[in-house]
Structures are given as C-alpha cells and as structure tokens.
Nucleic acid binder design. Structure first.
Lengths: 204, 204
DNA sequence: ATAGAAAACGGACCGTAGTCCGTTTAGTAT
DNA sequence: ATACTAAACGGACTACGGTCCGTTTTCTAT
C-alpha cells in the first residue's frame, strides 16, 4: 500500500504546476506582487528584471526560472485580463460571442481587441517585443484561430492566411502607436476596422 | 571676394553629407564593406556592432556616429534595394507604376513587397526590430503614403488608417515567419493579398 | 608653413536580458 | 529523527547595444 497516500483525490488540476514546492510558490507570489507594484508605479516599459529581483528579495536566477524571460513575465501579468477577453468572444453574449453572424462577430472582436489593447498596451508591447515569434504567444494563436473560423464561415478562400493579415492589422504596437504617438482616435480605428471586415466579407 | 572659392559649382548634390571629411569617408567605406561581408557570411541576425567595429578596424564609437544604431546600419545596407523597389512603384511601368487602376496597382504593390521582403528579410527584420517606431523608417512612410493614395482613389473612407492596417499586414516579420517558420508558400501569401485588396476595393 | 577650430576618433564604461553552476532547502523514505 | 535526493536558489558572469569624453586628425584661413 505504498502508493495510496501519494495519489491525490483530484489530480493536479487546480494548481498550475503539478507539485510546486512551498518556497517556489512563496517566491512566485512575491515576484508577481512586486512586479505589479513596479508596473503600477513606473510603467511596464521601465520594469527591469534586476529591479524586480531586488524588490522581491529574490535572486535573479529565480526570476528567470519562474518566467523564462521578460516577455514571459509580462504574459503572466496579462493572463487574467486576457482570459476574460477570451471568454468574451468564446462563450459570451452576441455579437462578440456565438450566436451572431460572422461579420457581426468579427466587427465586435476587432473593437473589443482594440479597446483591450488600449487598456493593456504597455504590457502587450512588452510581452510581444524581445521574443521571437510574437505569434507563438498562446493568446495570439487563439485569436488567430477564432478569426480563421469566422473568415471561413464568411467565405474567405484562405482563412488561415487572411486571419494572419488581420492579426497583424490589430498588432498592439500598431494600435498603441496610432493612438498615442500619431494621434489617431480609437473611434477612427474601430470605424476603419469595421470598414475593413465589412468589405472583406461582402466583396466579390 | 572672400566667398568665391567656398561656393562649389554644383552644391553638395552628388555626395550624401554636405562636406564629409576624408577620414570619415574612408571609415564609412570600410564599415559598409565589413558589414556586407559579415552579413554574407553569418547572416544579419548574427551581426554585432562590436564584431563590425573590430573587423573594420575602427572604434565602436565610430560605428554608432556613422549609423546611429544597429537598425540604422541595416537600413543603410538596405537602401539600394529599397530605392529600386520604390522607383518601381513610383515611376515604373504599370501595373506596379502609374497608369493602371488603383486595385491593379495595389495587387502589384503587395506582390512586389512580399517578394522584396522574402529576398531581404533578415535585413528588414533587423532594421525594424530594436527601434521604437518601425513606422518611422522613411521607406515605410513612403509605402504607407503610396497605399493611402491608392486606397483613397479606391473609395476607402479613411485611407490613412486603412493603409496602416495593410502596412502591418505586410510586416516583414509576418511575411518571413509565415514562409520560413510556418511553411506558407509565397504564392499563398500573394493570393491572399489579392483577395484582401480585391474585396476591399469592390465591397459595399 | 602654421595655428586654430571643428569634426571625427576610439575604447572604456554603463544598463539590461539572460546563463551557469556551486550551494541551500523542501519533501520523502526509512 | 535522519539521511537522501531532486528541486530551487542566488548572484557572479557574459553578451550586446548604446553613450561619453579626452585625444587625434583634417581642413581652413592667414
């Protein structure tokens, strides 16, 4: 009977890592907490990994073991907001969620994404920069797949590639810079997005 | 008559900088030459500013005074090819150049751009990365403006913003990664581009 | 030819992301 | 309680882009 006590009633579903050591959990909490404070106070751009390690009273190696990279940290910081947005377009009410026509859903998706980016722009830019394959971010893959499905329903010949074009059209850096550095209003962005996908799904 | 000898017959048109000192010219030549060799041998990704300075037998400060940044160096390396492409869509024969319908020109522009990126992808990625404002690259501005004009002729409501969407859809990183990392054929990219702009300029 | 000024030079220096590896510590089996 | 092992730790170290500033070189005016 040596194995009974080692089998949990519910296998490691609720916690992230299968079996995290207590010191590791404590340090993760400290790091996330410190990171949020630093971002709130100085902005995501200004967060350095050294400063974070120092503020969390933790060695630098620990920071990188936990998050892999600066981009990984930013993605972790984003994950709550990102999950909420994802729930919105996957399970929420129409027109963003299922139940509306593909065009309506695409319009709503772009608008939602634009406002999401404007709220979390710094984090998103920091998460996307400095990592090869912006596209390998899981959230990006999911958005891409969502648009791919809608575009297929809308009769686009190569929905995978078209979804990639639209993904880049909604690039965080693009949206943030348009609004903050080039003075384009969010409304112009959403209007133009609507024009883009409307023509796309009704054209020849 | 103190000024006569200081007025050149042709004001500084042929040379880049108005009056470049001989040692500066010599060093620029050495740097460009060394940079091209390094890129040819190891690829643009692998080029470091230290290695360049060392190979060109020049101080590191000189490299940065000349090109401003790594991105600036890459842009300089690109400028010949880029100018040629620009001439193509500004003065060349239709459908890329003037004389064809806006839709035809847009299709040709995207196709040309895609193949241009596939030929110079490493340099373009290196030129765009690590510099805030990928969009501030002069060549990018010009391409944007070109598409803006065509989109306006094509009846797009907000051609400036739409041109920005298309600019990002043609992002070098996107194109290179689609082809090299995700296995998308150039033909699929150009076909999808054609579908995109065709629907855009004929839609509701 | 000479002197003076402006421009260019070079490399030590800095900040930051990310790695490496010897040391410490939490869990486990007895 | 103790010993053992695997995981986690931490901070020195590397690589790289970019800056700074005292020194050297080129050009010009006389």
């Amino acid at each position: 009977m040596f194995f009974v006590s080692s089998i949990p009633l519910q296998p490691d579903v609720p916690l992230g890592p299968p079996h995290e050591r207590s010191d590791a959990a404590r340090n993760r909490e400290r790091l996330l907490c410190a990171a949020r404070e630093l971002v709130d106070e100085f902005g995501a751009e200004a967060l350095t990994m050294d400063a974070l390690a120092c503020k969390a009273q933790v060695g630098k190696g620990t920071v990188f073991r936990r998050f892999g990279s600066r981009a990984g940290l930013m993605m972790t910081l984003l994950s709550d907001a990102e999950s909420e947005f994802q729930r919105g377009f996957m399970f929420g009410p129409p027109p963003l969620g299922p139940g509306a026509q593909p065009l309506e859903r695409l319009i709503a998706f772009g608008e939602g994404r634009i406002y999401f980016v404007l709220e979390n722009g710094e984090l998103l830019k920091a998460a996307g920069a400095a990592t090869r394959n912006r596209f390998e971010v899981p959230a990006t893959k999911l958005s891409h797949r969502h648009m791919e499905v809608l575009l297929r329903e809308g009769g686009i010949a190569d929905p995978w590639v078209m979804a990639m074009s639209l993904t880049y059209a909604l690039d965080p850096e693009r949206i943030v810079d348009d609004v903050r550095a080039r003075g384009i209003s969010p409304t112009r962005l959403t209007d133009s997005w609507r024009e883009l996908v409307t023509r796309l799904l009704s054209g020849a």
